[in-house]
Design a protein around this nucleic acid. Structure first.
Lengths: 131, 131
DNA sequence: GTCTATCGACCACAAGTGTAATCGAAAGGG
DNA sequence: CCCTTTCGATTACACTTGTGGTCGATAGAC
């Protein structure tokens, strides 16, 4: 076993988590600075999001001087997995293939992305049959 | 242009919509019957969901005798598109390719599905560059 | 014709979300 | 040392969502 207690992370909270995953431990001010600009959120809003993420167990913090340094307590991969499986089961009854078909038909992948996907599939074909 | 006002559809509401899309116009009792068994929902709960979907514009109804016959007002495809793009942007910053990688790594597509994806990609490659 | 079982309309209520504002302590400027 | 700025804690508030209950009309059962 491994995951299990990955909390639910809302839309706005994902923005915060992506930042923390991407840039490592951050103090609130850094998060505010990045997100306020990008999403036009008030600093208060960002603080609230940080708080909720801590309460949910998605973030932890260390007190350094009079600042909090936030760091992720759950891996990005675990969260992605949770979201993906919820998305797939809600929309595609749990199967990934129809989802991919849909992406191909509607999300307008660039030729480069299509080539990239082909090579990913080539790789996958060679090791089919793992657990 | 085309879509735009596809309403947000919640998890529980998706169950209702999938039923209506799959089986065509239904009276409330049919929906209740299918979903109460499957999801252990009270009939009231199902009624509430139907109501909310009507209010959102996702379902419409015709009064037939003293029953309502519900039918979809939005296509499944439009809703799938909305969900997909929200999912992709929330979790993968909007690109489908990383989503594919994730599905391949974790959702265990069958070899047949992988082959199917390949042939779809072959098709996609040939007509790359439409809107 | 009257009584009851149904149907849809409207109400409830707690948890989660988006979006903040207020408050009290503490730290740094002068 | 005092005042202001800053930080985190606490509070707010409307909307959505999951989950269901109440109520008045009405169509059938007798």
């Amino acid at each position: 076993m491994a995951k299990a207690n990955v909390p639910q992370i809302s839309d706005a909270e994902w923005e915060v988590m992506k930042l923390v995953w991407g840039r490592g431990p951050l103090v609130a001010a850094d998060v505010v600075e990045s997100l306020a600009a990008q999403n036009r959120w008030s600093p208060r809003t960002v603080k609230t999001l940080l708080n909720r993420l801590v309460r949910k167990g998605a973030l932890g913090y260390q007190v350094v001087g009079r600042h909090y340094v936030y760091r992720a307590q759950v891996t990005r991969d675990a969260c992605v997995r949770r979201e993906s499986s919820s998305f797939l089961s809600r929309v595609f009854n749990g199967s990934a293939a129809p989802a991919l078909v849909h992406f191909l038909e509607h999300e307008y992948l660039s030729p480069e992305e299509i080539e990239r996907m082909r090579s990913i599939l080539d790789g996958a074909r060679e090791q089919e049959g793992r657990p």
